[in-house]
């Protein structure tokens, strides 16, 4: 859970103006613990897990017959000697996670490095936008799955098609949000800057980039989400190893508990990566964190 990043709901207590970031983090953490939020969260999890347990193992509802049960999955997941050969004690589990993470990292970084500048220029230069944006808008709605055959034809091996598919989805989300970010900047900021003697390039550096930053990071959050989405799609069709591959092969081999382990792992790892993106955003936009902290 993003304990560190969440704002406390209980706004009581002293908040000195010069709190160090560690002090602030500790303060927020203890406020979070004192608030009802962590307990509500636990209740939420308990309800879903409880339903799963009841539906499969106790009531044995129709449609749930062949689904692996809660206890079966967790016993397998935390077993030192797993029946289907996959648990937190087997290195294979971490190979899958590691390989998926590596693909995400390549695709996400590439999408950010290319998408953010492209989005900035699209938002900034009207001429450039007229060239590129219509093309962009035609390519963007094509579902990632439709790119699969082309990706396999274009890229050799099993690794690069998956990375390419993951990259594509991320890239569109990042670029589009960055462009919207630039468009959202109030014109009075750039006018104020040019009034104060800033050149066009300085306006870009000092107004356009920081002004678009909140949207860029919203875009990156979406981007990392769709990256996981298309990664799994890619891994299911092509590629070896990875969590999507794990889920798909477990299905083929009728090793159902592994499907659930793969899914839960995807959820946790996906959440962790998006929390990292958010933390990076908060770190780079101190002004915004403070702005929001004032509101609560």
């Amino acid at each position: 859970m993003s304990i560190v990043l969440d704002k406390p709901d209980t706004a009581g207590g002293e908040r000195g103006p010069e709190l160090s970031s560690l002090g602030l983090t500790m303060y927020r953490f203890s406020a979070w613990l004192k608030s009802p939020r962590p307990y509500l969260m636990l209740i939420g999890f308990a309800i879903v897990l409880g339903f799963w347990y009841l539906a499969v193992e106790v009531l044995q509802l129709p449609r749930f017959e062949s689904m692996p049960g809660l206890t079966e999955v967790f016993r397998e997941w935390f077993s030192k000697d797993p029946i289907y050969g996959l648990s937190i004690y087997t290195p294979e589990y971490y190979t899958h996670i590691g390989i998926s993470l590596r693909r995400i990292a390549y695709a996400f970084l590439l999408a950010t490095v290319l998408g953010v500048p492209l989005g900035l220029f699209l938002g900034w230069s009207k001429t450039f936008r007229e060239f590129v944006f219509p093309l962009f808008e035609v390519l963007r709605p094509i579902p990632i799955l439709a790119w699969v055959p082309l990706a396999i034809i274009m890229f050799s091996g099993s690794e690069s098609p998956v990375i390419f598919l993951t990259f594509l989805a991320s890239f569109f989300a990042t670029t589009l949000n960055t462009m919207l970010g630039v468009e959202s900047i109030d014109e009075s900021y750039s006018r104020a800057a040019s009034c104060l003697g800033a050149s066009r390039w300085q306006v870009f550096k000092h107004v356009v980039i920081p002004g678009a930053m909140p949207y860029i990071f919203t875009g990156l959050q979406i981007s990392i989400g769709v990256a996981w989405f298309s990664l799994v799609a890619g891994e299911m069709v092509s590629g070896q190893f990875g969590l999507g591959y794990l889920i798909n092969t477990s299905y083929m081999m009728i090793e159902y508990p592994k499907i659930i382990i793969g899914m839960i792992t995807l959820g946790i790892v996906g959440f962790a990566t998006s929390a990292m993106v958010r933390a990076a955003g908060d770190y780079m936009m101190q002004w915004r964190v403070r702005e929001l902290a004032l509101v609560d």
Partner: peptide, 18 residues
């Protein structure tokens, strides 16, 4: 525009990131 004529805008145009 030039720095000989400075404009204070209707809404605050202070840069929020500075």
């Amino acid at each position: 525009p030039g720095k000989d004529r400075l404009v204070l805008f209707q809404e605050s145009a202070l840069f929020p990131w500075m």
